[in-house]
Design a protein around this nucleic acid. Structure first.
Lengths: 249, 249
DNA sequence: CCCGTGTTGTTACCCGTTGTTACCCGGCGT
DNA sequence: ACGCCGGGTAACAACGGGTAACAACACGGG
């Protein structure tokens, strides 16, 4: 992992263009120029941002790239509890604790911006907007986990993959439509770990969806071909849900 | 549902004895005498405390009885996302929103204490301890959901039931040991909905554990017979984890 | 440059766990 | 008595896991 260095406020980590909105993440609408002391960290694939039982001190906003968050089951196996893309906030599951309950690793070259939690709390005392934003972030995390819970509780492999692909698409580039290209920065095994499936099942199911003409799969790239069918499989209404973009320029 | 009435501060809803600690719930260590305006609600089996898309206004501390919280999948099926026993706090998944994202219904005769969220927020501005308690409660909810997520992601029916039973036992009466009696206020179908299993599988698996002498099942009552075996199945270390009691007197 | 090696992904075959369906019983309220 | 609900059991089907063989590709060393 490269050494942390000063973050340039108001500059996007990915394209090095100034952020006209100064929006750090979709959850925390925070003008970076108000908090000039934030540092950024650059990670390569496999680098850990934090580890289970390490001290919890900061949240991290993903500015470019992507991360996985993993937990250990009591019998020692590892399971992925979430993927975090550009604009997402990592580390919320350990708020209020001394130590992290999960580990976070980069899936590819990734830049994150460090937000010391004590700093946020301190600002929260005086700025009610930050206070409210913290509650929104925490409860947003709760709801993301609840929807994963619904997915794992009742959906079959095909349906899980369909929902996963639509979620990835809409978190990345906006409404998932026919022709929308999705980049999956994670391996089949990582997808399986997150969706409660074995990697072979992930592979099989993606192949099946490809055979049926619903999607087109080339390695880690997926293109949606039949949006309606995909949404049908995912158990969704055919109407795409509006979702805020990650970072606006 | 019976009409809400004034709650008697410092008096336990179950045994009508004064609470010597004044502890409302294990999450929110709050002296009831500081907030004399709290009201309680009495529910019978099946009564709803709140509904999806109803206005979110309060959290509820379960003083006696038990509740289930359910969500609707996008295709209309209902799934239980959590059971809440004496001392638990219901409603955290909608914090920061206008409307509830879930519904809560009583599993048996139940008494809850209403905590208007606006009141908590107001107190949180001035009393940092309440502020911190709110964060702890939210992140505690996150972690409970994460452990359910691990369960649904990788465990088989037997393992899920084992973990479920141990969790129920330890949330109720303390460390789960040989001889510990567990009361399950929910139906087999509700257990199945929560654990991602069909009710027949729940039934089959409980019977199997009974046949093997690990537990004893009489309707909704379960007695642990071989604690080690049960913990082994649940993928836990044989050492019982210390866990705070719900309400101390 | 070629080659060996390790990683990731695909596919095929078999089989175990779980879902499905059906029917049973017992308790309870009407 | 009757129907309804919760619960138990059995037979069958299907989904997904286990295993293995193999292809594609990146990487590093000779």
């Amino acid at each position: 992992m490269m050494a942390p260095r000063r973050c340039e406020p108001g500059v996007c980590g990915k394209c090095a263009q100034p952020c006209t909105l100064g929006t750090l993440s979709r959850d925390l609408e925070l003008d970076l120029r108000q908090l000039p002391e934030l540092r950024e960290r650059r990670l390569a694939r496999g680098d850990y941002l934090f580890h289970t039982s390490g001290n919890f001190e900061s949240l991290y906003a993903v500015r470019s790239g992507s991360m996985k968050v993993t937990m250990l089951t009591e019998d020692g196996r590892e399971q992925i509890t979430g993927f975090f893309l550009q604009g997402d906030l990592v580390g919320l599951d350990s708020v209020g604790l001394r130590q992290h309950v999960s580990s976070a690793a980069a899936l590819e070259d990734t830049v994150v911006c460090e937000l010391p939690f004590a700093l946020l709390e301190r600002h929260g005392q005086s700025v009610p907007r930050i206070q409210a934003a913290l509650f929104r972030m925490l409860s947003g995390q709760i709801r993301r986990e609840l929807s994963t819970l619904l997915l794992l509780g009742s959906l079959r492999a095909e349906e899980r993959l369909a929902q996963f692909l639509i979620d990835l698409a809409e978190r990345g580039v906006g409404p998932a439509e026919c022709g929308t290209a999705i980049w999956m920065p994670m391996t089949r095994e990582e997808i399986g770990s997150y969706l409660g499936l074995k990697l072979e099942t992930v592979s099989r199911t993606l192949s099946k969806l490809h055979r049926e003409g619903i999607i087109e799969v080339v390695k880690r790239g997926v293109r949606i071909r039949q949006e309606r069918q995909l949404r049908l499989l995912a158990g969704m209404n055919p109407v795409p849900a509006a979702r805020p973009r990650a970072l606006a320029h």
